[in-house]
Computed example of a mutant assay.
Amino acid sequence: MSSTANPPTFPKTLPDHTQLPESDGTFGNNFQEHPQSILLTDSITSILQQYHPDGQYCIGQDCGIYWRLTDPPEKGAEAPDWFYVPNVPPTLNGQIRRSYVLWQELIPPLIVLEFVSGDGSQERDNTPLSRTQEPGAEKPGKFWIYERIIRPAYYGIYEVNRASVEVYCLVAGQYQLVTANEQGHYPILPLGVELGIWQGRYQNTELPWLRWWDSEGNLLLTGHEQAQQVQSQLDQERQRAERLAAQLRAAGIEPDL
């Protein structure tokens, strides 16, 4: 007597960002990751505003990118430390994004960045998706998911302990290492910017930070750094005016205040 297996059942509608978990409940890996994400976002905002005068883009910081429906849902998501998606609204139906759902929006990120806390093996794991799809089957590797499923045009692996960043570009469906230029930076051509390591002090911590430069090699500044630069220029102008006034007085000429 033969029997026929019951066919699989699927939901009539796929869940959106409001119906999927916004966190897997794990801790951040270290205290440096949050300021690193802020530094990247703050310094590139002016560039993104030039490319998107309509404001149609979003940046995710340790937010889930859902790429398949699983049980529990978190197993079907990756949460890059930083990513940028062009030509999508920053909010959905007036609501703050809880996650980014590929089957809902279909537009992949332009760039995804992972900050390494361990030895980097997770970020470089190329284990493919199991064909069996059985419960408990090994989860595919992060590198494989980005290259084959989420498919950001650029994938960067930043290792603060080694003061290095490794950048891949998607070419014909496969990631190829990007070669650094003479300045040791990695061009992100669609944005006209470069990614590299900057040794300096940010938020009271001296570290080799991951930062942006423009195509001419100028460091993209945060809002605070821009304000400091303006203040420094004003101080220099004031000091120059004071020196000139002193020279005029020494010559018997009262400066015209």
Rank of each mutant, 00 (worst) to 15 (best):
P128A: 10
I197E: 06
L92V: 15
E74R: 13
F27N: 04
Y100T: 09
E134T: 14
L39N: 01
Q229R: 12
W82A: 00
Y175E: 11
R201P: 04
I65A: 05
G64H: 07
L207H: 13
S46H: 10
L191K: 08
N29G: 08
E194M: 10
Y186N: 09
G94V: 09
V171F: 13
L106P: 03
A241T: 07
Y84Q: 04
R131I: 04
E33A: 03
R243Y: 01
E123I: 02
R148Q: 13
G200W: 06
W144C: 01
E22G: 08
A5M: 13
K12S: 15
I59K: 00
Y168Q: 09
E254D: 09
Q32H: 12
L177G: 06
L106E: 02
V160K: 02
P80K: 02
S232E: 12
P90R: 11
W198I: 06
N204I: 01
L92Q: 08
S23I: 04
T222Q: 08
D71I: 13
T13D: 10
A246K: 13
R243W: 04
R243E: 15
F143R: 03
D62C: 03
L220A: 11
T205P: 04
A251T: 01
A172Q: 15
G141L: 03
A5D: 12
C169D: 14
W212K: 07
P15G: 14
L102W: 05
P73F: 12
N161T: 08
I38E: 07
Q32M: 15
G55Y: 14
W144P: 07
Q133S: 07
Q228R: 08
P73R: 03
G64V: 00
H185V: 05
V193W: 10
Q203W: 09
E78G: 00
N87S: 09
R243D: 12
V230W: 15
N204W: 05
T127D: 11
S23Q: 12
W103K: 10
G94D: 11
A250D: 07
A250Y: 10
Q56K: 15
S99G: 14
T26K: 14
D214V: 08
G223W: 09
V178K: 12
A241S: 13
S37K: 04
G94C: 11
E225T: 07
Y100D: 06
W82G: 00
A251I: 05
Q199I: 00
Q203V: 02
F27Q: 13
E105H: 05
P72M: 01
L244A: 12
L210I: 08
I188L: 13
A172W: 13
W144Y: 10
L234F: 05
